[in-house]
């Protein structure tokens, strides 16, 4: 491999943006890399933060692409705002191997090597499980627990046994392979460009692999409302792409499983339903805690809070599912879209 072009779309000053960006400027690796940042406008608050960081690391190959200054004739037709932002940097990437990494990702030592080591000839995309770190507020805690339990389980299961599940936080692939299915041009019709990229690679007969290291997403302060709206969006994306698994989702949560199990065992073996429910609830909670610790390296101070946040998250699962099921509209980066079957974006 010649090297890696790391593409980072920026919009607004995320939590600890400067630290997140610095982690990409201080990669100690033998793999040559270049950084390509893309923004819609120089007025974006991220622009100032970025230029400051670039000045501090003059020896790192870094370029900035501002969409409004270099209006790509093709970009006006791109519906997905993230891909519209990325269109220029994707074209100018020097290396065939591309890593798309979101602005709120903070790279850990060895993470780039872990991703690259999985990219064999028969691999289409290497992705990673997301770990929510440096969270504040109940919404942030809910988000972190959701990512480290439900999503981590869901993603590991899908990538091993079912449809590929790729998350855009970290997506490593070869440009030459992406061109075979139409590249960013065709992905731009979808909100879940990451999922569709994985699906298209699978159609080409290529594998989707998950990195051995999780990727850190810096969450910062999240309100419960932010958490709620974000997961309505994610859920509606899941529903539009895979309606059948989405339909069965509520039956596999710890709450319905424990309730059904307690009801069944009480009737079959005449055991106390409440005790069976409590045992099942504690067992499933312990498994999720282990999963969370494995993915997120749970901060010690958060350990006593975990059961409470986990219980809250599980109790919210059914109302959230009902809210997701009741519509197809999503809000993202200031735009409102409707998701058609298959995940196609329709302007509202």
């Amino acid at each position: 491999m010649d090297g890696v072009s790391i593409l980072k779309p920026l919009k607004g000053a995320d939590a600890a943006l400067a630290l997140n960006l610095e982690s990409f400027f201080s990669i100690h690796s033998e793999i040559p890399y270049e950084l390509l940042f893309s923004l819609e406008s120089k007025q974006d608050t991220a622009y100032g933060v970025l230029t400051d960081v670039i000045k501090r690391f003059p020896w790192v190959s870094a370029s900035i692409f501002v969409l409004e200054e270099n209006q790509n004739p093709n970009s006006s037709t791109v519906k997905n705002p993230k891909l519209r932002n990325l269109s220029l940097s994707f074209e100018h990437a020097k290396f065939d191997t591309i890593l798309i990494s979101d602005s709120n990702v903070r790279l850990k030592p060895g993470e780039l090597e872990a991703l690259v080591s999985e990219l064999s000839e028969d691999t289409g995309i290497v992705t990673a499980i997301v770990s929510g770190i440096e969270f504040r507020g109940i919404g942030g805690a809910l988000e972190s627990v959701f990512l480290g339990t439900f999503y981590a389980r869901f993603m590991a299961l899908c990538n091993r046994y079912a449809k590929p599940c790729v998350v855009g936080k970290a997506m490593l692939f070869r440009k030459s392979q992406a061109v075979r299915f139409g590249g960013l041009r065709l992905l731009s019709e979808f909100l879940a460009e990451d999922f569709m990229a994985g699906e298209s690679m699978r159609k080409l007969g290529l594998k989707i692999k998950t990195s051995s290291m999780s990727v850190n997403q810096v969450l910062g302060r999240h309100s419960v409302e932010t958490f709620w709206l974000r997961h309505i969006r994610w859920g509606r994306i899941r529903k539009s792409h895979a309606p059948l698994p989405f339909f069965f989702e509520p039956f596999f949560g710890p709450l319905p499983m424990s309730l059904l199990g307690a009801y069944g065992i009480h009737h079959l073996f005449l055991l106390n339903a409440l005790q069976v429910f409590a045992a099942s609830w504690a067992y499933l909670g312990a498994l999720d805690f282990l999963c969370y610790v494995r993915v997120t390296r749970c901060p010690i101070l958060f350990i006593p809070c975990f059961p409470l946040i986990w219980t809250l998250r599980e109790c919210l699962a059914l109302p959230l599912w009902i809210r997701i099921a009741s519509g197809n509209d999503v809000d993202w980066r200031g735009s409102r879209f409707t998701l058609a079957p298959g995940g196609l974006l329709r302007d509202k």
Partner: peptide, 13 residues
Amino acid sequence: PANFPFYLEILKS
């Protein structure tokens, strides 16, 4: 309608 453009593009390549 969602996967048809990918189908045509892969056939083309």
